[in-house]
Nucleic acid binder design. Structure first.
Lengths: 211, 211
DNA sequence: AATCGTTTTAAACAAGTGTTTTAAACGAAG
DNA sequence: CTTCGTTTAAAACACTTGTTTAAAACGATT
């Protein structure tokens, strides 16, 4: 691979290493070595390690949000059900990954890390920068499940989020495990096609309001 | 709180700090300071930081496994459905947490960290030590879903696992968010009572085998 | 060709890490 | 009381971390 722009080399290396080892476990020296640039380049171009982490997220999230926003605009007229909504989301995410499922898996793992690992600054950053776009998607979800209370819907959305983040972030490891355990391989889109009906059924589950 | 045994003081402090900040972000000095013991005590009693991490898991997992194993034995006679199976699992986990939901949340977060964070030694440790016990549970799941192909069931189990780990590990943060967003608070068992029907519906979702 | 702002380089910085070492304190057994 | 193995204590170990510095190299503009 030829020597690209310094900052994108750093972003590429950081994206890979962060998703493999986590944020704290990845040192700036790991990143700059893999990127083939000088150690000081990170602090020069990004300011600090924290800002580098945020930049990694922004590079993926910004194009994804504009893509999603445009698709949501033309979808607000119809009344899509969960299967349609989730397939749209999956398709948009894959599109933002330039069609490469591997990139989506990497980003999902980063997203999982952002929540599981301390990284309070990251949660705040994501919340402040990228929540408005998801508001439109939430409205469509609400329209698709008018029978659910706000509380019930809130939790079911996070159940979906968990299943998705966990599965897609470990997709390659799980696919390898599936091949080993039952001899049948799967590919990434197959997994998505199994996941979506599962989630839709969960969202449409009979309600059991607490006493 | 009075000064307990040195090793359990260390385990308590490590359990809390690991679940709050992650493994790499928690230093031995953090742990020994909170535990009120000398820094060298960790290496003296556990050998290394890695072995301390494993000891934290063992302290929870070992009693949980014996509890689960005994319950599974008397359950193999009946033909429990998913709601029963999941409720049994939840009840056992809560019981292993001495009835304190907070402790279960902490352990779930640790489990999530073990998978998301690098920590290859931990994944290997957990796999080698504690997988046999879950085999029995898997058999019951298989018996409860004979219409599913092995492949479909494999993936749906991991969908469940993801939703559960993600939700319960971040339960306190999510509960705070729920209270802030929609003014209604939830408690831990309520969340479990919402999660289980969601998962059961997902497991029983109509099958859409790939072409 | 000389000059400017921008970028890269190598070296050092202070701070924090896990671990080891040495000596001191403890608590029961002879 | 003394002696013994076990536990604690303080200090130092060698090493890695993120960040900063100051000089060198670069690249376009005048």
């Amino acid at each position: 691979m030829v020597q690209k722009d310094t900052v994108t080399s750093i972003l590429n290396a950081a994206e890979e290493l962060f998703s493999e080892r986590g944020f704290a476990e990845t040192s700036l020296r790991n990143i700059t070595t893999r990127a083939g640039v000088n150690l000081a380049a990170v602090n020069y171009h990004f300011g600090s390690k924290k800002e580098l982490i945020q930049a990694v997220f922004s590079r993926f999230l910004r194009p994804f949000c504009v893509l999603l926003e445009s698709k949501l605009a033309e979808l607000h007229k119809t009344q899509p059900d969960f299967n349609e909504l989730l397939m749209l989301m999956a398709h948009t995410a894959l599109q933002a990954s330039h069609g490469k499922p591997k990139r989506l898996a990497i980003f999902m793992r980063l997203l999982g890390l952002a929540y599981s690992q301390g990284q309070g600054h990251l949660r705040r950053f994501l919340q402040k920068e990228y929540t408005p776009v998801f508001g439109g998607f939430m409205q469509l979800i609400k329209a698709a499940s008018p029978e659910l209370s706000d509380e019930e819907r809130f939790w079911r959305i996070h159940f979906m989020l968990g299943a998705t983040a966990f599965t897609l972030s470990g997709a390659d490891a799980l696919m390898a495990m599936a091949e080993h355990d039952l001899g049948k391989g799967s590919d990434f889109t197959q997994v998505l096609n199994r996941l979506i009906p599962f989630l839709a059924a969960g969202m449409n589950a009979p309600i059991l309001e607490p006493t």
